[in-house]
Design a protein around this nucleic acid. Sequence first.
DNA 1: CCGGTTTAGTTTGCCGGATGAATTTATCCC
DNA 2: GGGATAAATTCATCCGGCAAACTAAACCGG
Lengths: 403, 403
Amino acid sequence: MPTPGPRDPSRVARQAQMRDQNLGVALRGIVDAVQPPSRAQLAASEGLARATVSGLVDHLIEARLVRELDPTQTQRAGRPAVPLAPAQGTVGGVGMEINVDYLGVRAIDLAGDVLAEHVELDDLRGADAGTVLDRLAALVAPVIDGLCGRGVRVAGTVLALPGLVDRVTGPLRVAPNLGWRDVDVVAALSAHPALGAFPPRVANEANLAARAEAHARRGSPSFAYVSGEVGIGGAIVLDGEIFPGRHGWSGEVGHIVVDAFRGPHASDGSLEALAGQDAMLRAAGLPSTARLDALLDALDAGDERAASAVAQAARALGVALANVANVVDVGEVVLGGTFGQLYDHVHDEVAARLDELVIFAPWSPLEVSRACAGQYPAMTGGALAALSTVLTDPAEWLRTQTA
Amino acid sequence: MPTPGPRDPSRVARQAQMRDQNLGVALRGIVDAVQPPSRAQLAASEGLARATVSGLVDHLIEARLVRELDPTQTQRAGRPAVPLAPAQGTVGGVGMEINVDYLGVRAIDLAGDVLAEHVELDDLRGADAGTVLDRLAALVAPVIDGLCGRGVRVAGTVLALPGLVDRVTGPLRVAPNLGWRDVDVVAALSAHPALGAFPPRVANEANLAARAEAHARRGSPSFAYVSGEVGIGGAIVLDGEIFPGRHGWSGEVGHIVVDAFRGPHASDGSLEALAGQDAMLRAAGLPSTARLDALLDALDAGDERAASAVAQAARALGVALANVANVVDVGEVVLGGTFGQLYDHVHDEVAARLDELVIFAPWSPLEVSRACAGQYPAMTGGALAALSTVLTDPAEWLRTQTA
DNA sequence: CCGGTTTAGTTTGCCGGATGAATTTATCCC
DNA sequence: GGGATAAATTCATCCGGCAAACTAAACCGG
């Protein structure tokens, strides 16, 4: 037998890696901090020597990833600390999204500030993939040019799509609600000049929205996220990290079957079939062309059919989320998208089903909350995902920049 | 605001840690290898310098975790390699299990050889927890004494229970099929003299069985494991590692609801209610006191009711596993316990439901296979879990030994 | 039998990077 | 203005991985 070759060189510890890793620790310590920490605080909180942190921080400042704030005039004795904060407008992550009703871009820097944003509302159901991607490119190109012109280094671009995306090889497998199937999104976008230099990573809309949600909540929360747009997507977040699965296909809560014996096809009992936007509108007796607003209006008006439609959907949602909790042991459920808007009408039923069905509920009650990541969270999540390449290994990223 | 204190000192890289980590890399490289590797092969496969590996291996040999085999007489030119293998009988992990029909112990060394084993068959449904734990202690004590007497260092003890166990604090929360609830298992066992020195870790039976299964398959597989005993347990394995969840409560596939509208309680549609051993026996028209063998006999005899009972159960099982696959993106399903015995009767239906319902099936077909970890896999998994403390950080474990 | 070749393992000097102690800097307080 | 106090930097040290040189143990061809 021949030598099997390097198997997993990432696990071994080299000394060069040590430096790189600690550079990342320091940067994340500064970016994730609630209040700008000083070098000394950073050293204490990370367990490194002050001298070490000083060296790392110098490196980060020189790379324009971190900046020093004005010394705080505290009332204590001793030399005042120099607070450290993420640099503003020096590195930008670009998040893009194509969804059923809109497409757009959002660029965010390390400080979390939005550097640029454009959204176009339009019904893209069944639209030609090539055409839509061209439109997106036309929207994104000036943003990227603007960033570069202002001296912002682009960390990367990430595109959110409402479908199944292979995180390893890139192509979109299927986006049912757009009517797309097996589209090589990366190649199509990379063909455009401004985007060619920053070939996009593509990811599922719900996973990226969940990332934005985790970021908005700070403190490495764990939760199951449900993103009801036209379809129902979802994601699992553990300790603040998206749980991607092997291919990035995890968290597909819309395809959870909660009523296996409903129709001839077991998929007739899936969450999306029972609680998708179309299903709810139909059950409420509203035309399929209606929007969610119509359903909300009907609910506010006290419409019985609307109430029962939402109640049925909430029951299915609660059961599906209980299944998720039983499988991955998450303690919190976050409702986003459609279900965020319907939050007040579904919360109690979802919470009741979780209490009833999740086996560990008596010892660790589940919490249900509403998404708080703002509008178009997947765009934010995409920008954050782009920035995460800088945050996870700043040294490596800096090497790619100079090269 | 005061200093927040050390937050996550595990992420930072110190130089001492580097050594410790590489010691673990080397040890795992030797233990997990298909064929005993030489120092040079190890260096090549892990990406370390030969000199470094030599030093690490010397350390491991001195600690009696690794041994040198006789040089292989290969037909090639050059100095013959010295193959390295895990030491035999120098360190033992002790796995224990209490289940509905039996209780037992199994001790395994780093080489994977069974050093000792005792199983007592008995119906423990509703048995008093204290009494059963005393019986287990009486079974385990001579095993541990025997190991110590033979110079085997006990790496730890792990108890498998068919219920919900808090992996952080230890106590058993609930074991429905034993009729136990909120039992402080660790305290009860630690009270015994021989076990006092090795306070057990407690874990879910299915999770440990899945660990044994992952070990038996080698090569870091990813799969969902189903352990049908009297209840239905399960576990998620990713890259050869058990996915524990926050509390160790993940993989509870038995509580997945696949038929939410079946009865007044949504839990009436859970997998365990539809495909548990009792449910299958009842549906097959067999007395509830019957064993699985009776069902298998009826199937072999061509009994229609038995066939339809198993078919119904298989459908529920397939749907539940499809739900798991959609949520955590695993590509393989392993049937153990009851479902391993029923494998031939359920395989096709389970595979069909997975193909139909798992959204990524068209691009990454799911495989269904039968467990191959042998009898009482949870005992093996417990022993392996105990040994894993040595494997993950041998340096740290050696420090605890000398201290 | 002997020197050349090949591969395994060890020795050695080197280097990067973390570390702790000492030093400098900058503030508050009396 | 002179301690007291805390932040940041400097410096000598140490640890551990690394590359290259070296030794060991086999095969081979004459």
